[in-house]
Write a protein that binds this DNA or RNA. Structure first.
Lengths: 212, 212
DNA sequence: ACCTGAACACCGTTCAAGT
DNA sequence: ACCTGAACACCGTTCAAGT
């Protein structure tokens, strides 16, 4: 089953497909070769080796991460909208994002978003180092949240989950004696979407507040 | 070089050592066997297989994560101190924490800290679902921050780093026309310790503020 | 109960050889 | 310029065999 002519593009596309569907571990040179109908060693001619193949995939992902356009009337609203857009883009490419992160290209991937954040923070009246801090705080918050969130999704069966932990009356009582609503809330799994919005809004409100 | 009697404990200790020093990928059954001076297959008798060995290491780490004792006069201060303690403990065991996370045991690992947070949030006057949200927002913030931060450390050579990106006058100018101090601040690498404190304080201030 | 080596099915990578 | 199979050094795991 010889192919007319194998392209570097074809190799990258097939590799991206494997990663997208089954994660980076599923991307073995041999499986990739089988998928493409070539000998394993042909792949080496086109992309060097496995490491360089992953580098190329990551590079591609970084460039695909388009600029997010802020929406909303106030700077705070617009910052939150950037954060939401960032989260959406990150969640659409979980495996590739993880690889970008492992390779230390996260900052570069976030340049468009960072520029948007700088613009909004500036519009909100922040200047100098304080503006830079605000931008970075939001960036860290968003990326960190998505990492944690993604992790929870991947391993849904936390055993024992918070659920069961707070079902222990002794433990629950020790921390918060008379608040069944609180313990009940902690018993149910967190709603990430809601928690994300709530967290970002809370952070942004403080960062943009007049007094340092 | 037959050993008198191989223990499950010995296997776990050696495995933990390998992971601590060189990361989970360096933990191969064969290297572990060599380290212990036994046949590879002996390990299987004691710990099942590689997966179960990692499970056991993770379980151990979870139990090692002690309770953090809040310090400070106001609830806000005490919450921040819990966050700092959490960050310190996480950073002391980077590889193992990553494994705990991969296995979805993060929530359980954080139970002691969560109870402390519940207590403080309650003391600050928050009740019910809103208190639960505050606890989780802080938890996500801390874990997420450490994940992002750890990642940056592991790959120090961001290429091109923010440094170079903001050195491009056109890009910098488009986002924030007249703030050299801002662009200069973004040119230098972030100070994680400072950014962490700043972020947590900002978040907590909002979460504990009277109006929802 | 505990340990062993042989064997199997997988890896990534190199290299000399083909066209 | 592009592709190939053979070969090497690694994996995790199983299993029958030892004591």
């Amino acid at each position: 089953m010889a192919r007319s002519s194998l392209t570097r593009e074809e190799v990258l596309a097939a590799a991206a497909g494997l990663v997208r569907q089954h994660g980076p571990d599923a991307l073995t040179m041999r499986k990739l070769a089988a998928e493409l109908g070539t000998a394993v060693t042909s792949i080496y001619w086109h992309v060097g080796n496995r490491e360089q193949l992953l580098d190329a995939l990551v590079e591609r992902t970084v460039q695909d991460m388009g600029a997010v356009r802020p929406v909303g009337r106030t700077p705070a609203e617009r910052i939150v909208s950037v954060a939401r857009g960032l989260r959406r883009e990150l969640r659409a490419r979980p495996h590739l994002i993880a690889m970008v992160h492992e390779r230390g290209l996260t900052e570069r991937m976030f340049l468009p978003a960072q520029q948007a954040l700088v613009h909004e923070v500036h519009a909100a009246g922040l200047r100098g180092a304080r503006a830079a801090d605000a931008v970075r705080a939001v960036q860290f918050q968003v990326v960190g949240f998505v990492l944690v969130e993604r992790n929870r999704e991947r391993s849904p069966a936390q055993s024992p989950a918070e659920t069961e932990l707070w079902d222990d009356p002794a433990a629950a009582g020790a921390a918060a004696p008379d608040d069944p609503a609180l313990t009940h809330a902690l018993t149910r799994p967190a709603d990430p979407e809601r928690l994300f919005l709530l967290s970002v809004r809370a952070l942004v409100r403080s960062l943009l507040a007049p007094a340092g």
